[in-house]
Design a binder for these strands. Structure first.
Lengths: 361, 361
DNA sequence: CCTTAGGTTGAGACCGGTCTCAATTTGGGG
DNA sequence: CCCCAAATTGAGACCGGTCTCAACCTAAGG
């Protein structure tokens, strides 16, 4: 019986009130559970609501309270399992607090990101979780905060912006990667990332508060530590397209003194670099060693299993959500998730066969 | 100069009207671009809006028009690259029409799905794209439609429900898989899927309008065609957890007459099945042949490269979005994306070595 | 010069909730 | 039995837009 009558129009508080024979205000209180309501009115209203198939209109609710029950999530590429998993963490955490997730994909494009933030702000989302694609152009994020909306940064930070930021500390793991490679005998170590920068990488270049900065720094520190000479030209950024990545690989692999090891900044990069390596008929690890960031299942199943740096992506998502909820005034259970990256050695790293480079150390 | 003053309170149409010295109605018309407005008023209002940093309140807009500019997407598992990619297609298509995506993850749980649809309906989303986790319990979807909200089904259909459904036709590809395996000499062919059903699979069991139904049917048809005896007991469903999957693999691989080939229903299943195979020290394809649905990059990079059935996941997402937009009264360019699956033969299928089974054919 | 159609304008109702405030009812203490 | 505080109730403003409607203005047609 609850099925037919609502097809025409949704029942409203006023409808329920009329049916229950009480005032709109009382019905609203009973339904919303917020004022003082007598037992009798309560049951009357509940019954009427049931009968009418009443469903509260979130839009109206958000409108009056000025705050919606949804949070905006802005990522560069949902296709990337990294964000998929993080999104899951966010989603799981936020659901319990009664929020829904509005997702926007930016294709790692700043203009899209700015538009997305605008749009979400106009939708009056309660807060934003953003994986910013630039560490410098951030006026849209500041403006969001100025509007009184909570903003949490994810994956990448922005120096000088007083925003909660959830990111993994890669300092230790990155140093470990550098040491592993150096100890194994590598001197020409490539790094490939899709992070966008204006110019080619140079020593001391400011990469912002990005994981890439940590990771490149770790390698450099390992070199310094070992007293070896590091070639920053082997750091290839801007590998955002297949072509760009192919070019980067060409520069690393097809020169007189090729890289003997390559570090892949994420699993998508790794996938493509592996493709490039395969195309050239190079063997891993005999001809080239490979280390990748992000430990997804397939990295263990390929031949040889990949040496990777694992990071708690799901937990990062959860942690970002919790940070946001805290900002929104929710009392979030105090459990603090550890966000540490760690190296998992498998079989894609071995000594370079043709040690075309100087002895070192 | 547009930066400081809005921090206190968002400017409203009324504010803009006051600043421009016109009525609220005129300001609204100028801003919304909908009534008749003179040049003079227009420029006056625009200027005032600019000065105040006016941002329209989507919530209020949606509230009065009764329809929001967001669409709900309900999927079982965003972590699955399948949905990640589809989501991207949806997102790309829908963005141009001015909609945003509200995403809910259900963990393939019916109760969650029902709650999600409720919640999204309450948020007054313009429409829903749902990958239903059940082909039978669908009253929530009917009710959504009854409320006048557009609903498009994704991946899985529901018989008897008059809802737009976007799914790939696997009939041909599935038959091809069956033939390939049979021609190669396999008679004991396993199938592993995470689809939930009440009981173990039996011949003729109704799997609804699901891809799994198509695929199992294809294999059975190939057997019939070849006049061989098919063992339906090798179809393992409900592999929703690691444990369940391990159990399924045990039943397939650890028995007297083990399966000589296994078909994996999606890339996540494939990943896990591969893990199980590796753990047992079985070689592919010498000891066991493998075919997987969904052609993701890693399937080509493992040793041996996997024989897979590719499906246009991104296009499916786009097509679902277009179907929804059409329902919402948008004139969507008529381009119809072809949604065909096709077999890609690589190297994970070969003849069974120990043909423990009858000659056949 | 009057009529009429059409463009322009402002007042105010409306959407469906929340919330304030004053009025009414209830109940316990003196 | 009266008084005052607390609980309950209803009227109506409000949020920020959209939209109807009537009034006004202008210019073309007769």
């Amino acid at each position: 019986m609850t099925k037919r009558e609502q097809s025409a129009k949704e029942a409203t508080v006023a409808d329920v009130a009329r049916a229950a024979g009480v005032s709109k205000a009382q019905a609203a209180r009973a339904l919303g559970g917020y004022g003082a309501v007598s037992e009798q009115v309560l049951s009357l209203v509940i019954a009427a609501a049931e009968g009418l198939g009443y469903r509260p209109n979130q839009l109206a609710k958000s409108m009056t309270t000025g705050r919606s029950n949804s949070i905006g999530v802005v990522v560069g590429d949902i296709e990337n399992a990294h964000f998929g998993l993080a999104l899951r963490g966010i989603s799981d955490e936020v659901r319990d607090a009664g929020y829904t997730v509005v997702l926007v994909n930016t294709d790692e494009d700043l203009a899209n990101e700015v538009a997305a933030v605008q749009e979400l702000l106009q939708q009056r989302v309660a807060g934003l979780i953003v994986a910013p694609c630039s560490s410098t152009d951030t006026s849209h994020l500041e403006s969001a905060q100025a509007h009184g909306r909570a903003v949490v940064l994810f994956d990448r930070g922005v120096r000088g912006l007083a925003l909660d930021t959830v990111r993994v500390d890669f300092a230790d793991a990155a140093l470990e990667v550098g040491r592993l490679l150096l100890d194994t005998g590598h001197r020409r170590i490539g790094y490939v990332s899709s992070q966008r920068v204006k110019a080619a990488y140079q020593r001391g270049m400011d990469l912002g508060l990005s994981p890439v900065a940590d990771r490149v720094d770790g390698i450099e520190r390992a070199f310094t530590e070992a007293g070896s000479e590091w070639d920053p030209a082997l750091v290839k950024l801007n590998a955002t397209s297949d072509d760009a990545l192919a070019a980067a690989c060409a520069e690393l692999l097809d020169q007189a003194e090729p890289a003997t090891a390559v570090v892949c900044s994420d699993s998508l990069i790794a996938l493509r670099v592996l493709g490039q390596i395969k195309r050239r008929g190079l063997r891993i690890p005999e001809d080239i060693s490979v280390v990748a960031y992000d430990d997804f299942a397939w990295t263990e199943l390929i031949e040889p299993p990949l040496t990777v740096v694992a990071q708690p992506v799901y937990d990062m998502g959860r942690e970002a959500a919790r940070a946001l909820l805290r900002r929104l005034g929710h009392r979030v259970p105090a459990e603090q998730l550890p966000l540490r990256a760690h190296l998992i050695e498998r079989a894609s790293v071995s000594a370079p066969t043709v040690s075309s480079t100087l002895p070192g150390r």
